[in-house]
Amino acid sequence: MKDTDHETRGEALLSALDNSGDACPIRPNYAVFRKFADWLATFLLCSSMIFVTVVLCAILFFLAAKGGGALSWEFVTEPPRNGMTEGGIITPIVGTLQLIFVSMCFAFPVGVVTAVYFNEYARGGTLKKSLRLAMRSLASIPSVVLGLFGLAFFCTFLRFGTSLLSAGLTLGCMVLPTIVTASETALANVPQDYRDAAYALGATEWQTIYGVVLPSAFPGIITGGILSVGRVAGETAPIMFTGAVFFAPGFARGVFDSVMALPYHVYVLATAGTNIEKTTPLQYGTILVLLAVVLGISMVGMAARSRLRKDVL
C-alpha cells in the first residue's frame, strides 16, 4: 500500500511538473517562474501567520489599554453597586468559580470513568461503538442547543429551576467529551509494560487500573481537566437560560441559588443598563478579568501539558 502510494504520488508529481511546464508558454523563463512562485508562496504563508499574530496582539492590547484603568483591588473584591455603575465584580467572579466547580463535579469523574471504560474495559462491540458515537455527537452540539436542553431537562423537567446546579450540569455536559478525549490520551500513554508488570505480580484487572494505570495517567488527566475548565469559564450561551442572572445579592449559598457569571456579566453590562456610558470602563474591566481567568487557567493547563510532554520524552 505504502509503496504504491509512493509510486502514484511520484507519477502525479511528474505529470504535474509536465503540465505546469506545458502551461507555461515561455520556456526560458520557466525556472524563474518556479522560483518566483516558491518565493510568493513562502511569503504568503509567512504573512498569514504574522497577520494572525498581529490580530491577536491587537485584540489583547486594545482590551488591556481600555480596561486597564478600571482594574483595582476594589474592582475585584467588591460586589456591583448602584445599578452596576459602581463597585466591583466579585459576585460574578465567585459565580464563575462555582459554575466551574459544579460542572467539574459532574464532568470530571464521569469523563475519567468513561475514558477508563474505553481504554481498559471495552472490547469493541455495539456498546462501545454507540458510546463513541454519543461522545462525538455530544462534542459537536452547539452550545446554545445545550442551553435549550438544560432549560428543558434540568430547569423544567427535574425542577432544579434556574440555578447553579442546572447551569453547572449543562456546562458539564458540554465539556464531558473534551475530558474523555484528554483522559483517553493520558491512559493510552501509560506504557503497556506497567500493566504487564502489575499482572505479573498477580494484581487483578481492577487493582492494575486503580493502583497502576490511573496514578501514572493522573497528571495527564488533570491537565486535560484544567484545559476544559478554561472553556467552562468562558461560555455564555449554555448558562443564559439555565442559571446565570443579571443581579444576585451575593454569592450562591447552595446549588439551588442562581449565580452571576463573568461572561454573562460582560453581555449584561454591554447590552442592559440605563447607563451604558458610565459602565463602559466596567465593561472593559470585566472583560479583562474574564480573559485573565480563562487564559490564566488555560495557560496553567498548557504549561502543565508541556512539562508533561518533556517528562515523557
Partner: peptide
C-alpha cells in the same frame, strides 16, 4: 469552594 457552597445553604 465546595465547603463554602454547601455550608451556607442551611441558613
Amino acid at each position: 469552594l465546595t465547603a463554602s457552597l454547601f455550608a451556607g445553604a442551611a441558613f
